[in-house]
């Protein structure tokens, strides 16, 4: 049985989601102290969790991005599911700060100080990425199911 050819847009979605998350983790891994300050400035986490978040989050972004870009359907599904979850949390955090009037840069792709302050564009971009990660997840999930059906019982 031949597998269906994957539509072009799935590749684009994988490249966009995986590529952006891979790009996003680089500056955070490079300078964890600057990223901890970014996390602190959100004023959403208790102090005790700020550094732990700054240590773990960039690697969560890195590992899930690699899974979406290069792994088999099972790991791709898990990676895109986790990326969708992270994006939901990021979107909620940025929204809360916009509502509270806290003017900080989102720290999404850079920990530098000269990055523009978060605004509605960040929310729009995140919603678009959530949609793309859902597309990647559904494709990977369907492939997992197809592979399971192909296996001899």
């Amino acid at each position: 049985m031949t597998r269906p050819v994957r539509p072009f847009y799935i590749w684009v979605a994988r490249l966009a989601v995986g590529g952006l998350f891979l790009a996003a983790c680089l500056s955070k891994i490079h300078d964890p102290q600057a990223f901890a300050l970014v996390v602190y400035r959100y004023r959403l986490l208790p102090d005790i969790l700020i550094n732990i978040m700054a240590i773990l989050l960039p690697w969560m972004e890195c590992v899930t991005a690699l899974a979406v870009l290069f792994a088999t359907a099972r790991w791709r599904a898990a990676g895109s599911f986790l990326i969708g979850g992270m994006l939901l949390v990021f979107t909620l955090a940025i929204s809360l700060n916009l509502i509270r009037g806290i003017e900080i840069s989102c720290g999404c792709f850079s920990t530098r100080a000269d990055v523009a302050v978060s605004d509605g564009w960040n929310l729009f971009r995140n919603v678009a990425l959530i949609w793309l990660s859902t597309v990647v997840f559904l494709d990977a999930f369907r492939r997992m199911q197809a592979q399971a059906e192909e296996r001899p019982s």
């Binding site: 964890p32 690697w59 899930t64 898990a78 599911f81």
Partner: peptide, 20 residues
């Protein structure tokens, strides 16, 4: 699979931070 990815990410983060 999600839990395994999180474990890999968490373990890598902790090891890399300890080696800095």
């Amino acid at each position: 699979s999600c839990a395994i990815l999180l474990l890999i990410a968490g373990g890598t983060g902790l090891v890399v931070n300890a080696l800095r």
